[in-house]
Computed example of a mutant assay.
Amino acid sequence: MTGPTEVRCMLMRGGTSKGAYFLADDLPTEQTVRDELLLRIMGSPDPRQIDGLGGGHPLTSKVAVVSPSAGPEADVDYLFLQVAVDKAEVSDRQNCGNLLAGIGPFAVERGLVRAGTDETSVRIRMVNSGDFATATFPTPDGRADYGGDTEISGVPGSAAAVVIEFPPRKGELLPTGNVRDTVAGIEVTCVDNGMPTVLMPAGALAVTGQEDPTDLEGNRELTARLHDIRLAAGRLMGLGDVTGTTVPKLTLLSAPRHGGAVTTRTFIPTRVHTSIGVLGAASVAAGLRIEGSVAHGIAALPAEGDRLRIEHPSGFTEIESSIEHAPDGGLRARRTAVVRTARKIFDGTVFPVPPTGGRS
């Protein structure tokens, strides 16, 4: 079985990423068949993904699979799949908070959720991790409206706001149990507020943390060290062997330059994010709030309020974050919310590259 020769698909920008959104019922149920089909749809493996929907970068080679929720806690289930660009690999090992911004509107477009007359809130279960989120967005006259005046860094122009709120997570913010760990010779803080993330002072790696992403990607000594750090941190965080995965994320921290709380450069895992992922920003923000983390002496936290501005290569992401002590004495997130935008780019039929052996 090689999967269908044409598939109903919606291409959407979600936050600072772009991906193909599918109903689960429109894809093969068998994972290997589904993944092989998605590789052909996105045009992988090929550095340019010239024969598919992908844009030649991890941020534009993403897939969202949506279905009615299997449980009463959510309206829809959202499975995120990262399709590799230059190799035949599809991973479900992480969430994507950027594509998450498009899940609510997509659910309304496909009739999975009835829209309100002014705005709609959609409860979403993120299948990859089991976490939940609620997305609220405008639906005047019962239709998803993508136009608005909300701007986010990394996206030209403006669009309608999608407010995403995450309920308090049950898991421990510090998966290693420590505020600081020494990994591959440097002190780091391992934090998980929806995305396993390793926070590192940029100066400890002999860079400023203000460099252009391409310069960091071209620093072979740095990327080799980061590879070692990621593998060691993955084991410490209980993720096992992360050689073939994109988690944990690695985020360099340096002092803010434009009035924010901190400057970031995030590796995914070897390419540098041109902005920052929503869930990655949530983990960074929580890490900044933890007393004694490696952000101490680097971050400039506001005197009051929960809102933090996380600076990144193309601007900033504003996120509301607070933490608290759990009954067992550990730390947990109390509130996490972020404003994103999303836009429907096309809705129609995608024709995957035929399987090896011929063209149609």
Rank of each mutant, 00 (worst) to 15 (best):
residue 242 V to Q: 05
residue 240 G to M: 03
residue 223 T to Y: 12
residue 186 I to M: 02
residue 226 L to H: 05
residue 250 L to V: 07
residue 274 T to W: 14
residue 245 T to P: 04
residue 213 P to R: 12
residue 188 V to H: 10
residue 199 L to T: 08
residue 258 H to A: 14
residue 213 P to E: 02
residue 209 G to M: 11
residue 236 L to Q: 08
residue 251 T to G: 09
residue 180 R to V: 12
residue 253 L to E: 00
residue 269 P to S: 10
residue 185 G to L: 12
residue 248 P to I: 10
residue 261 A to M: 08
residue 215 D to M: 14
residue 216 L to Y: 04
residue 270 T to N: 11
residue 266 T to Y: 10
residue 282 A to P: 05
residue 230 R to G: 01
residue 175 P to I: 15
residue 190 C to D: 05
residue 204 A to K: 09
residue 283 S to K: 05
residue 268 I to S: 01
residue 237 M to V: 09
residue 231 L to G: 07
residue 270 T to L: 15
residue 266 T to K: 01
residue 246 T to G: 09
residue 213 P to S: 06
residue 199 L to R: 04
residue 239 L to Q: 03
residue 190 C to A: 08
residue 236 L to A: 13
residue 250 L to Y: 01
residue 268 I to K: 03
residue 195 M to T: 07
residue 228 D to W: 13
residue 185 G to D: 09
residue 239 L to A: 08
residue 262 V to R: 04
residue 234 G to M: 10
residue 272 V to L: 07
residue 179 V to W: 01
residue 252 L to Q: 03
residue 200 M to Q: 02
residue 252 L to H: 05
residue 192 D to C: 13
residue 177 G to A: 12
residue 273 H to G: 04
residue 206 A to V: 12
residue 268 I to E: 05
residue 254 S to Q: 10
residue 246 T to W: 11
residue 261 A to T: 08
residue 230 R to T: 03
residue 184 A to C: 12
residue 221 E to Y: 14
residue 240 G to H: 05
residue 278 V to K: 03
residue 194 G to S: 04
residue 277 G to I: 07
residue 210 Q to G: 11
residue 181 D to H: 11
residue 200 M to T: 04
residue 222 L to Y: 05
residue 189 T to W: 01
residue 188 V to S: 06
residue 239 L to M: 15
residue 257 R to L: 11
residue 176 T to L: 15
residue 216 L to P: 03
residue 255 A to E: 00
residue 233 A to Q: 01
residue 249 K to C: 07
residue 176 T to M: 15
residue 186 I to V: 14
residue 207 V to M: 06
residue 257 R to I: 04
residue 208 T to A: 14
residue 250 L to P: 05
residue 211 E to P: 06
residue 274 T to A: 14
residue 274 T to D: 10
residue 192 D to S: 10
residue 252 L to N: 01
residue 177 G to R: 08
residue 177 G to K: 06
residue 269 P to K: 09
residue 251 T to P: 06
residue 265 R to N: 01
residue 222 L to F: 07
residue 228 D to F: 12
residue 207 V to A: 01
